[in-house]
């Protein structure tokens, strides 16, 4: 008996910290997904700011529409909605929705932030996404950051800041970083005029090829129904 107790104790000794340490990666992803599943659809208002080296655009007033499982649309209320390609597919909702078709790998914790790092490897070899890395706040069950590597469009990063809508897993602010390709229009198509000032070395310009899109949401209207037509 004593021995049995000792064995159990030993098992417990090993097990409890594991249990305390938290759920497995799969469980965590599942929990996050459950939280997110509360949202069937939403319509959010916000401001979109773009920071791409070769683009100067005004801050846009946008409406973002979402509908389960993976429909999403950013609509510019005030002007031309120049939306980075693939950004829709790289949304958290999308990543979470696809998690079931991925191998989930636990990569421990990021030391500085204490966020849980989980890597998702799509099982489908043909998928555009090669790897998604999620940085999850385990207490609040919120994804704070994702990094997604794609075959076609390089690496994307999402960084979320949460506030009022945290209970639905919806961020107040999303920063989307992506790789941009060179932009150069052939002469004749452009509307250029040489004002005689010396331009900086074009090579310097092209080095910095990260683009950033920042959406600050002011309000969400959740589960009020969104017509399919807006996604067209």
């Amino acid at each position: 008996m004593k021995q049995g107790i000792r064995i159990w104790g030993l098992i417990l000794f090993f097990l409890i910290p594991a249990g305390m340490q938290a759920q497995t990666a799969e469980e965590l992803v599942l929990k996050v997904k459950e939280k997110f599943d509360k949202v069937n659809d939403y319509e959010a208002k916000g401001k979109m700011k773009m920071n791409v080296t070769f683009i100067k655009a005004p801050v846009a007033t946008v409406k973002v529409y979402y509908k389960k499982p993976d429909k999403m649309k950013i609509h510019n209320e005030s002007g031309i909605s120049l939306v980075p390609k693939g950004s829709i597919n790289i949304s958290i909702a999308n990543i979470i929705a696809n998690a079931a078709e991925c191998d989930i790998i636990d990569a421990g914790k990021e030391e500085k932030t204490q966020l849980r790092v989980i890597k998702l490897l799509p099982r489908n070899e043909a998928a555009d996404i090669v790897l998604s890395t999620l940085y999850i706040d385990e207490q609040q069950l919120l994804i704070k950051k994702t990094k997604t590597t794609t075959k076609e469009n390089g690496t994307y990063e999402l960084e979320m800041t949460y506030g009022k809508y945290a209970e639905y897993g919806l961020a107040d602010k999303v920063v989307f970083s992506f790789n941009t390709k060179d932009y150069k229009l052939p002469k004749g198509v452009t509307f250029d005029y040489d004002d005689g000032t010396k331009k900086g070395d074009p090579k310097d310009k092209l080095k910095n090829k990260k683009g950033r899109v920042e959406i600050s949401y002011s309000s969400y209207s959740i589960n009020k129904g969104v017509a399919d037509i807006v996604f067209q």
């Binding site: 683009i55 100067k56 005004p58 031309i80 932009y183 452009t190 250029d192």
Partner: peptide, 14 residues
């Protein structure tokens, strides 16, 4: 908004 395509830059003006 006005979309202005330049040689190495795009300007969008509200």
């Amino acid at each position: 908004e006005l979309f202005v395509a330049r040689g190495e830059e795009v300007n969008i003006i509200s």
